[in-house]
Simulated scan of single mutants.
Amino acid sequence: MELPANAFKSELAAKQAPLYGCWLGLANAYTAEIVATAGFDWLLIDGEHAPNTVVTILEQLRATENYPAASIVRAVNHDPALIKQLLDIGAQTLMVPMVETGAQAEALVAAMRYAPAGIRGMGAGVIRADRWGSVADYATRAAESLCLITQVESKTGVDNARAIANTDGVDAVFVGPSDLSTNMGHVGDPGHADVQAAISRVLEVTKAAGKAAGILAPAEADTNRYREAGFDFIATGLDVALLKTAAEANAARHRGGTTSAERGTY
């Protein structure tokens, strides 16, 4: 059996058009599969803020793998043991939050690679990633199919964005505007001039490093602005917010009241 290809990694490298994605925070394979039919280019299975486990992430990977939308898994932290588990169950693209230094980026690359290039534990023959031993050369070629996205979400991360982006093995840098604005002292205001300047700085150094840049932008105006700025992949929806907004709109239409969108919650 051939090494499973990573279409998302290939599309990022091609940089032909922005790739639009949706956050999956419902921690449910059934809803993940529904969103996979909607036409997004990629889906983010959220292991940081959603109540996911390795098992529920596996269920969502299985549910979405036969659809065109590529699946990305966000780890809850930098733990190499957890990263090993996520890779072993077949996650090909990982997003890791709160990366603040080049050294942290290097450690994440090492966690995704087998020795001598890294520290990933060897489970060849007993893991889903190599189809339980069916991919004969998996151990030597695994890195070809893996994609690492590092998240910059703090002022320290912005200050070190050049080092992070230039780390060999980092494929993309993703900005988290909410965490970044909060860390910079502008809670709930990612549109603040200082935050926007920081975002532009991350985009600039990421592009200069030849890497792809991504960002979360569920508001249409933000999506348009970041697309024009040159971001390569943009999260335009969150399943939790989409469900809540639609439910509130339905209830408000029949019973009166306002929705989260009208109140400015989203």
Rank of each mutant, 00 (worst) to 15 (best):
V96K: 01
T182A: 15
R255Y: 12
R141E: 14
A129Y: 02
V240P: 00
G230W: 05
Q85M: 13
K211V: 06
V126N: 09
P80Y: 10
L19E: 01
T236S: 07
G121Y: 06
K211I: 01
G47T: 09
A229M: 15
A70M: 05
G102Q: 01
Y114S: 04
L43P: 06
T167C: 12
G210F: 09
Y266H: 10
E48G: 10
R131F: 07
T150W: 00
G102K: 00
T259E: 00
V73I: 12
F233M: 10
L86R: 06
N160F: 02
G237K: 09
K9D: 04
Q16H: 12
H192I: 09
P18D: 01
T245S: 15
K15D: 05
W132C: 04
G125S: 12
A136Y: 06
V187G: 03
A246N: 11
A38W: 10
E11N: 14
T53Y: 07
V158M: 01
A13K: 15
L238V: 13
L58A: 14
A249H: 10
T101N: 01
E48L: 11
K211M: 07
L94Q: 00
A142M: 04
A139W: 07
G102L: 00
W132V: 03
G90S: 07
H254E: 14
A165C: 08
A235L: 08
T167K: 04
A251E: 12
A235K: 01
